[in-house]
Amino acid sequence: MDSRTRRTRAITPPAAALCVLSLLALCVTVRPLLGAQAGQPPTGVQTLHVRENIWMLVTPDGNLALQVGPEGALLVDTGRNGTSDAVLAAIRHITTRPLRYIINTSAGPSRIGNNVAFGLLAGGATDRRGSGPIPAIIAHESVLARMSAPSAQNAAAYPVAGWPSDAYAARERSIRYNGEAIDIIHQPSAYSDGDSIVYFRRSDVIVSGEIFSTKRFPLVDREHGGTVKGVLAGLNRMLDIAVPEVVVENFAEGGTLVIPGSGRLCDEDDVNEYRDMVHIVRDRVARLVSTEGSLEQVKAARPLVDYDGRYGIPAWTTSMFIDALYAELARSTTANNGASAVR
């Protein structure tokens, strides 16, 4: 028996099969790992490190923002009701420091939904095992007014524990937390009458609330004072704050980052694109209101055909957005005695 035969005999069928299976296992295990989102909490809430001590929490209903530092954690918006465990797990994935502050950017359901759950966290402990003071909740006074207003059953719409404990009525409220100045800027009559834009000065990060989204047309809660005009003003205000990166190899992007109410992490140019869209569709519908007249005629002209596929979603369709635009612009046109509602 020559050496070749001996080597052949040394490799048995199970060994050959093992070789195949081992390589197969390697390929099967390594390739998915390359595509996995390393370090994500298994809760359905994704976390994205934005910059310095700011994170974006991506929930199915919209984005939240988290600031973390030696003094504790600060959460911008709390998510839709019933998702508190998932949001807390995502926070604990980032930090175990106590939650000291909550800021609500409006009274929208995905902004205040977990206020009660988080507002009752003793000591701000995100594992629900602490003791001590509960987190402070900051919001515009309109949010407090809406949450504390009596419902049809003559009881407040929301439990007291979820109400803002620090409501502001001025143009803006500024605090310093974790060594960072934070501007909470009221934007009148945007998504609603109680919107706030939150600007983290040192981190250079804006949190837009419902005023800005990369997934849908702007939400307008007309029942609670929302207007497209206010949304547009809010977008322009963010453009005034934001400054893109101006270095040799990277400008017209980066710089100030913007966490939208829903959708991807953005910069000034993304807000710019969205602002242009709102401005353009407002002008188109305003023209149709003045020339065509009825809502049906306006819709038949399909004024948003180039944005429908991008921003129309089942929960807030193009038709619903035109309804809101029409109601606002028709009223404005009437108020101006037939003059253009646009300019």
Binding site: T8, I11, T12, P13, A16, A17, C19, V20, L23
Partner: peptide, 13 residues
């Protein structure tokens, strides 16, 4: 028969 297994294994690898 073993050589066949070997060749198949090497080819698969």
């Amino acid at each position: 028969r073993f050589s066949g297994w070997l060749q198949s294994g090497i080819a698969a690898c």
